[in-house]
Computed example of a mutant assay.
Amino acid sequence: MTPDPRPTLLNAAIDLAARGVPVLPLSAGKRPVGNCRSCSGPTPGLCGGRPNMKTAGPCACPAPCHGWAAATTDPTVLTSPEWARAWREAGAVAYHPGGADLTVVDLDNAAAVTWARATLPPTRTIATTRGEHWIYRAAMTSHTAVRPGVDIKSTLAYARWLGPGTGTMTDLPSAVRALAAKEETTRARTGAGVVSSTPPATWDRAVATGCRHTERYVRTGLDRGLAMVRARTEQGAGSQAFGVAQFIAKQHTTCPGPCGLDTLAQAIIDTAVSVGVPRPYATRAVTNGLGKAVAAP
């Protein structure tokens, strides 16, 4: 009989916590457990109504809640009755790199690993299913799709614990910080604003003959996504564009197609550019977002 791995996961979490690494359980699907009842509804919960914990501050809920913000180094919390159900259903252990003053460069494929070996200073590395995690000493802001197949996980993010890895951990290099700096947006010019060099992308049935959704459904989802990108006038518009593209693409994975995703993608790119994201970066982020959704099981 195959031994139950769950006590092993809890023991690994306790060991990491003892070394100052904040940890949390992941579900069998390798995602954080769902929010508690107090925080899953429309009214503010114990954490002040922050369902996605996009603002700083630890989770105050007694059960693991709000993803990365639930990570803790307190063994009494990890072994508490409130966390027991999460450990019974856990499929993996995650940790909050920023909480341990660490940064994870997540290399999602062989090409990204090759790039890192030629570009970044050596550090501790951990093999993943499709690539590698490179761990550096010092925290920074987290960013998605800073280049093809490369994410940065540190503050306000979690990474899956896959073992201690090999090699000597080194300080976070300026080359990694520079990747994030390229993503940061700048304010659009006052007055006329930023004018796109391409005409606005229009989605309709002419480009989506195989889509199973109504035009109203698609347009509503797109408008909400574009509003989220426009709201990122200071920073994060590129990462937001990535997330919007991934979310929208997932809605069409069961359609026979074509669904005109290239037209929707162009609308997201143009919106990101309008708030200051360089067009090459916006294009790369949206393309990667679409690819992530297609590759997801």
Rank of each mutant, 00 (worst) to 15 (best):
T220H: 08
G221W: 04
L222K: 02
T144W: 07
G98C: 04
L120Q: 06
H66S: 05
L16T: 04
H96L: 15
T114C: 08
S80Q: 07
P25Q: 03
V229T: 05
A139E: 08
T155L: 12
K54Q: 15
W83Q: 01
C39T: 02
T283Y: 06
P164M: 11
Y281R: 10
G20T: 15
P64K: 02
P75H: 02
D223W: 12
G191M: 13
C39F: 05
L46F: 13
D15R: 12
P32V: 01
G225N: 04
T72Q: 04
A227Y: 05
A18D: 15
K30T: 12
P42G: 13
A181P: 02
G291L: 11
D101A: 13
V105I: 05
R224H: 10
D171I: 07
T263R: 08
T220D: 14
L172Y: 03
A178N: 13
V244T: 04
L120C: 05
C211Q: 09
G289Y: 05
L26E: 01
D108M: 12
Q266N: 10
V195N: 06
V21L: 03
V244S: 03
A90C: 03
V105W: 00
Q240K: 13
A18K: 13
L26K: 08
R279P: 06
V207K: 09
K54N: 15
P173L: 04
R37S: 15
R130A: 15
T168W: 04
T190S: 15
A60G: 11
F247K: 13
A116P: 00
R205N: 03
A188T: 03
G243E: 14
P81H: 00
L102V: 05
R224N: 11
V218A: 06
A112I: 08
T79F: 01
K292H: 11
H96A: 12
C47N: 07
G34A: 14
D74F: 01
L222P: 09
I135Y: 06
T186Y: 15
V275H: 05
D223R: 11
T287G: 10
V93E: 01
G193K: 02
T123Q: 03
R124D: 00
C211Y: 07
A206W: 10
K250V: 15
G260W: 02
G98W: 11
T2Q: 14
D223H: 15
A272E: 05
P148M: 01
V218W: 03
P42D: 15
I135M: 09
A86V: 05
A63I: 02
R31D: 09
L156M: 15
V21G: 01
Q251L: 13
G236D: 10
D108V: 14
C255L: 07
R50P: 09
P42H: 13
N288T: 12
D151N: 14
A265K: 01
C39N: 02
P280L: 07
V275E: 00
H252M: 00
I248R: 06
S197M: 11
G131E: 10
T287R: 12
R50C: 02
V294D: 14
G67I: 09
A28D: 13
A293D: 04
T125C: 02
G98T: 10
P148H: 02
A241G: 08
A181K: 08
P75C: 04
L10V: 05
V286R: 05
G20L: 07
A208C: 01
T114D: 08
P278A: 12
T55R: 14
A175L: 10
D74Q: 10
G260I: 00
T141Y: 11
V21P: 06
A118H: 03
T123I: 02
